[in-house]
């Protein structure tokens, strides 16, 4: 469904490419993990897929095909039509990613307001349903609250609700659990897994945390310095890593064995 071919990204003020020609596919209903340390180019890749990269800052070549349509060739207007309706993003810091002076409800239903002509009451119904879908309680009350009144874990659920309200084909999750407590992390992962299962929504999950990726993703791609050094079935990669970089990454995971 999402196919990336030979993607190159170069910032105008940098002397080398941030992404040096990568190929990556995400099939319908699949969760793919994109792993790498900070600076490996994974977030930049996500920014390009979601068209959040300011065009005046970087030169992008290659192709990003969503259902066969090259996103890089779209004009601004048609691209906007995809943003938030076909592709949604969940960011790392739910606290700062939400508008502090806007109530939860309007933020959740914003994608509908931008992309559909649904009447207000209908948008509200869908937003409430989306909030219920991410396992939040008292949604009517929640609808009228402000972000600072909720905890980080709740906010991330709200962000996910806002991302799925328009039933996108692809959900880009950029380190969505990094800023959260471990117990909350697990809940969010479960939630993502369930949404993927129930709705058949594809997820590109970006993380530096290998344990999380192993739990969640069916396939994984490992990035190092702007290149994908290894990609394949998650269990396969974890059991028999071929690239030396992957081997080092896996060796660096703290395991329980050491505790025994």
């Amino acid at each position: 469904m999402l196919e990336i071919h030979d993607l190159h990204i170069r910032f105008h003020d940098a002397d080398h490419e941030a992404v040096r020609g990568i190929d990556l596919t995400v099939d319908t209903g699949e969760i793919v993990g994109l792993v790498g340390e900070s600076g490996s180019g994974k977030t930049v890749t996500a920014m390009v897929i979601s068209s959040l990269m300011p065009l005046n800052k970087a030169a992008v070549t290659g192709a990003v095909l969503l259902d066969g349509e090259d996103l890089l060739k779209l004009d601004e207007k048609s691209m906007r039509k995809k943003q938030g309706s076909d592709i949604s993003v969940v960011f790392q810091e739910p606290m700062t990613a939400m508008n502090p002076v806007m109530r939860i409800g309007p933020q959740v239903e914003e994608a509908l307001r931008v992309h559909t002509d649904l009447p207000k009451t209908e948008r509200r119904q869908r937003a409430l349903q989306a909030l219920r879908d991410v396992d939040l309680d008292n949604v009517e009350e929640l609808y009228n609250k402000y972000p600072h009144q909720l905890s980080g874990g709740m906010l991330q659920r709200v962000m996910i609700a806002a991302a799925i309200v328009s039933e996108p084909k692809l959900l880009l999750a950029d380190e969505p659990t990094t800023a959260l407590d471990v117990t909350i992390q697990a809940q969010i992962l479960e939630l993502l897994q369930r949404l993927n299962r129930e709705r058949g929504m594809s997820i590109l999950f970006i993380s530096h945390n290998l344990n999380v990726v192993r739990k969640l993703c069916s396939r994984v791609a490992v990035m190092e310095k702007g290149l994908i050094v290894e990609q394949g079935d998650t269990e396969q990669v974890f059991r028999e890593p071929r690239a030396p970089y992957t081997q080092r990454l896996i060796a660096a995971i703290p395991t329980r064995k050491k505790l025994w």
């Binding site: 959040l52 993003v89 960011f91 700062t96 990613a97 508008n99 914003e110 931008v114």
Partner: peptide
Amino acid sequence: NKDYVRTAYSRGNTRLA
């Protein structure tokens, strides 16, 4: 430059919106 602006863009808002 704040994060919530990026979120707004990611939902398909134009710069003016």
